[in-house]
Amino acid sequence: MSLEIVGIFVLWIFLFGYVIVASIDFGAGFFNAYSLLTGKNNILSKIIKRYLSPVWEITNVFLVFFFVGIVGFFPQTAYYYGTILLVPVSIALILLAIRGSYYAFESYSGLRGHKGYATAYGIAGLLIPASLSVVLAISEGGFVTMHENGPKLDYSALFTSTLAWSIVVLSLTAVLYISAVFLNWYANKAGDLKASDLMRKYALIWAIPLIVSAMGIILEMRNTNSWHYQNILDLTWLFIVSGILFIITIWLIWRKKSYGLSVVVMILQFATAFFAYGISHYPYLLYPYLTIHDSFTNESMAIALVLAFIAGLFLLIPSMYLVFKLFIFHKGYISGEDETHV
């Protein structure tokens, strides 16, 4: 494998990690607001707090890792994407800032349960993936033009593009679906059957728009006969695997069986789709201007980064194991028996 493939592979893994962990977080915020507004308050908020409190900063580092890493491995992306994404990413950042700090603030100031704030928090959690997923649409090409003093984003083309909107819809439904499947299992494990039932219902409901929007995107690409569609055709089998895994997840949840397994299968389903998408995107980072080959950093930096990454993993994997052991899989913690917060 050449170094640029190693680089993009590592980054893609971390982006996938962010997508999953952040989806759970964003979706949970939305469900929390929704249940507050519809009066199902106490069922959910405790579960959500137990899962989210210790991990949100870790979630954020996945994102930081991705955007720092991509500038390291593919410095030209800083130039192209940095210039064109000024506005969309700034909006995402503002939302992220408000949401992240509000989360910490409310835990300590008695704002908990306030409907207005919770709603804002829940909605911000949906707008963030929406504004970030626009980047995927832009990478398909057609929205960026080159001028003498740099690349420019064509906003009107972007806002009227059905492809862009389908991607936004997909990201939103995916967030809600991933979150519901996870929280269903988590609530069940904590012994909160009422919450678990509710999440099970949400998971089944959101599965439908999820699959519709995913199909829609592929159809959209076929209609415009984009370069990307040709690549996707070569990888049909991977998308089919993903589809089968999706059906298995739904079946498990439907039968109210092995919720733990359903989470694993759901993650595998997204992993196959995410990587199939990534591979079919090869070699472009931004069609047609940037490929992973010509934007790649120099060899000595690449080697240094890969070595640093390997060293970093030796540090991270044991510590992540500790977190999972103490919080996610710790019976006393999940069910709220241990109250050991500072």
Binding site: P54, I58, M320, L322, L326, F327, Y333, T340, H341, V342
Partner: peptide, 11 residues
């Protein structure tokens, strides 16, 4: 972030 999370939540 990992160890801070653990520290804060394991008093």
């Amino acid at each position: 972030a990992i160890f801070l999370g653990i520290y804060l939540y394991t008093w």
